[in-house]
Design a protein around this nucleic acid. Structure first.
Length: 459
DNA sequence: CACTGGAGCCAC
DNA sequence: AAACGTGGCTCCAGTG
């Protein structure tokens, strides 16, 4: 009943065979459009770089570095902007070798030259990693990325040549330029099906905390929204859009961070930083929090702990209530650590035995991250087999941790969606009774290209 | 010339 | 004490 290590092996074996079929099928690429996009982006880069060359900052740069001046060097940029022009650095890189020169630090410098630098770097990343990276690997209009099962410590998958699992989507402009190059085959549509909140659901299944299972099961409940309300002291006053943005930060900076071992000193810092970009009832979030009696972030490094009236203190109390909300999680994670420390290994719900040296946070993360992907893999194996034996023209062409991308013949669309939905949400629960929450999927269909995917209503 | 580590950025 | 996690790719700057 409970998956054994033999089942785990079988999953990897069948998974490798299924993914080989996925790689073989390939994703259709509009090469003409890709070429055109590479040209356009190249021209934009050239234009911006010629503006840079007539900027006085570039003159200072040339004075300092002479023939070695390299416009793409962040190392040189920090020396010009911080040493020569006297701007204040935001801190140093991890190993303290030089001042930080990432987007977050540099965007605080109010100079046209620096703004253009960031724009150029963004476009260069798009051109070299994504546009050129895809073009280099296309064969006869098809892209065949590798999907690996043997490289990741958590028994997740990875992808390379090119990496199909990190194609931009968050930056809409960049996402559009690359994703418009991925197209369905003639007479087909692209169908992307992803699990909704898979990692949180698997988390609830692993810890078997009653309240967590309830949150993961009842569609009316939403842990990220509830934590956003507590973390930012929100009530009825904020708009839907404001709530959505606050929820996003609560989810990523608090809920997942806390479940995976972070705590208030770090989560409060990150939440406070994100608050700069939030509003509550039209008011800047930080001033809203000040009105609620929170004077500032507070000293995160104080050995004495958080000081009342600071945001750090507030997040510490939210964290404590988070533990009270999920008491079984709070207690079982301690026992989970003790058990590992005693015997040197742990087992995932999908049957994998992890033996070796793991940090505390690894112990919290691996048993969730791996099995969440295993749900996807189990479903993918079934679907690849089903497509093969039904003699269908549709093909699965990619996989991104909790989602499956397929190139589906129009005539097979309804069948494919029905089969995928049932496999991913029902069949898997019969095979794996450890899944004690419902599973849900979202289906999106793209008629023209991957960027244009639209939610497809399930009946 | 080949190789490497660091920094940074893209995704889940 | 420590301080969410997993990857891949590119460029720079340094090494031998």
């Amino acid at each position: 009943m409970k998956p054994t290590i033999v089942d785990a092996y079988r999953l990897m074996h069948d998974g490798a065979l299924a993914l080989a079929r996925v790689e073989e099928a390939g994703i259709c690429v509009d090469v003409a459009r890709l070429d055109e996009t590479i040209r356009d982006v190249g021209e934009r880069i050239e234009g911006l770089e010629s503006e840079q060359k007539s900027d006085e900052v570039w003159s200072a740069w040339r004075r300092r570095f002479g023939a070695k001046a390299n416009m793409g060097s962040r190392d040189q940029l920090t020396k010009v902007v911080y040493d020569e022009l006297g701007h204040k650095p935001e801190g140093t890189t991890r190993l303290g070798k030089r001042a930080k020169a990432d987007v977050e630090s540099l965007s605080k410098i109010d100079l046209p030259f620096v703004r253009r630098f960031l724009e150029v770097e963004k476009l260069k990343k798009l051109r070299s990693t994504y546009l050129m990276g895809v073009l280099r690997e296309v064969v006869n209009g098809l892209l065949h990325p590798s999907f690996n099962l043997h490289l990741v410590r958590t028994y997740r998958s990875s992808s390379d040549s090119p990496n199909f699992q990190n194609i931009p989507i968050r930056d809409e402009e960049v996402g559009a330029m690359i994703r418009r190059c991925f197209v369905p085959r003639p007479g087909h549509v692209l169908v992307e099906i992803d699990y909704k909140a898979l990692e949180f659901r698997v988390c609830a299944c692993h810890w078997r905390d009653e309240a967590m299972v309830r949150y993961a099961s009842d569609p009316a409940l939403d842990i990220h929204r509830d934590m956003a309300k507590e973390l930012y002291l929100l009530d009825g006053r904020c708009s839907k859009d404001e709530m959505k943005r606050a929820r996003f930060h609560a989810k990523n900076s608090f809920v997942f961070a806390t479940l995976y071992g972070s705590y208030w000193r770090n989560t409060s810092r990150s939440l406070w930083k994100n608050a700069v970009r939030l509003t509550a009832g039209g008011e800047p979030m930080q001033s809203w929090l000040e009105e609620q009696g929170i004077e500032g972030l507070g000293d995160q490094n104080s050995r004495k702990g958080s000081r009342p009236g600071t945001y750090g203190h507030h997040v510490e109390s939210v964290e404590r209530r988070f533990g009270e909300r999920f008491p079984a999680w709070r207690d079982r994670k301690e026992r989970w650590l003790e058990l590992y420390r005693k015997r040197g290994w742990f087992k995932t719900m999908t049957g994998f035995v992890c033996s070796g040296v793991y940090s505390r946070n690894d112990l919290y993360n691996y048993p969730i991250q791996g099995p969440a992907f295993h749900c996807l893999l189990w479903s993918l194996i079934r679907l690849v087999r089903w497509l093969g034996k039904s003699g269908m023209r549709s093909r699965i062409v990619g996989q991104i941790h909790d989602s499956i991308l397929a190139d589906v013949h129009r005539d097979e669309l309804a069948d494919y969606v029905a089969e995928a939905r049932r496999t991913m949400t029902e069949d898997i629960r019969s095979a794996w009774p450890w899944i004690i929450t419902p599973l849900e999927v979202e289906v999106e269909v793209a008629e023209d290209n991957w960027f244009g995917k639209k939610v497809y209503e399930l009946n």
